[in-house]
Design a protein around this nucleic acid. Structure first.
Length: 265
DNA sequence: CCTATAGCCTGACGGC
DNA sequence: TGCCGTCAGGCTATAG
């Protein structure tokens, strides 16, 4: 699930709940979701410390640990955070459980274990090591920087949007949403986009991600014009009512409207 | 340079 | 009801 807007909402949730509380205990209940860190080292790094700030880059959430380092959270397809007091509210697939001295807990839940929990010395070093591109909502990723990215590759535009080394934060769902709103066919070759289409794509990308955060990624709050609620087998285009097409693009299922998103070469 | 595929994991769903 | 194959909004490694 979690793409940039989802992770941004997780960040706001964490900021509103888990900052500035002393950590009494850290329990790792699934070792294989850990990155380059052992159970013991992670527990040692967190216990008796507190979270002081957070930062998001693409689909990664970084949480500062007393200014000494960073806890890195990645959510895979099924991850989320839950802050709660009563132990019976512990989510069913909790992989890391942090108990604070105020009696509350923060759970990192990941049903499919495709997410990762790690430690990093600095955010910048982590981003460099993972070769992540600029965050999709970073103001430094402006129109001219975006043009450079899309013009230098012949891949399909959908795979460019989803490539975390080129632009960080967009996954399968939001790439479909952005292309739908921009009226661009997902298999259009990136470097073949017209100047006008490239500019439209840029503004649509920024606006779509910002709006999704504003709606707190709640599909019920999205305007009717969004593809997201209809993005399923048998779904119909919210604009023209036609059945949505379903194709594979770079190994993922892409949904689009063949009337509004014409293929051109 | 780019695409396709498998693998990591688990659970929901549909068909029989 | 129960079993089985397929699929799911992420990412990496590898082969061609």
């Amino acid at each position: 699930m979690p793409e940039l807007p989802d992770v941004e909402v997780f960040k706001q949730y964490l900021d509103a709940t888990a900052l500035h509380q002393r950590i009494a205990k850290t329990s790792i209940t699934s070792r294989n979701i850990l990155g380059n860190v052992s159970t013991a080292r992670l527990e040692r790094a967190l216990t008796d410390q507190e979270f002081t700030a957070s930062h998001r880059h693409g689909k990664y959430l970084f949480v500062a640990v007393d200014g000494t380092g960073w806890l890195v959270l990645h959510f895979g397809m099924t991850g989320f955070l839950q802050y709660f007091r009563d132990p019976k509210d512990t989510p069913p697939h909790t992989r890391v459980l942090i108990a604070f001295t105020n009696g509350f807990h923060l759970a990192y839940d990941s049903k499919r274990k495709l997410g990762r929990v790690d430690l990093a010395h600095t955010v910048e070093a982590f981003i460099r090591e993972r070769a992540l591109g600029p965050d999709a909502l970073d103001p430094e990723l402006d129109l001219s920087a975006f043009r450079k990215i899309i013009s230098t590759t012949r891949r399909t535009v959908k795979s460019v949007l989803m490539n975390q080394s080129l632009i960080a934060g967009i996954g399968n769902v939001y790439s479909d949403e952005i292309l739908f709103r921009a009226g661009i066919h997902p298999q259009t070759k990136s470097n073949r986009l017209s100047e006008k289409a490239g500019e439209k794509l840029f503004h649509t990308m920024k606006a779509t991600l910002r709006k999704a955060i504003e709606y707190r990624v709640d599909p019920d709050r999205f305007p009717n014009s969004y593809l997201l609620p209809y993005r399923k087998k048998g779904g119909r285009c919210p604009r023209c009512g036609q059945r949505l097409r379903q194709i594979m693009v770079s190994g993922r299922t892409a949904y689009y409207c063949s009337k509004d998103q014409k293929r051109r070469r």
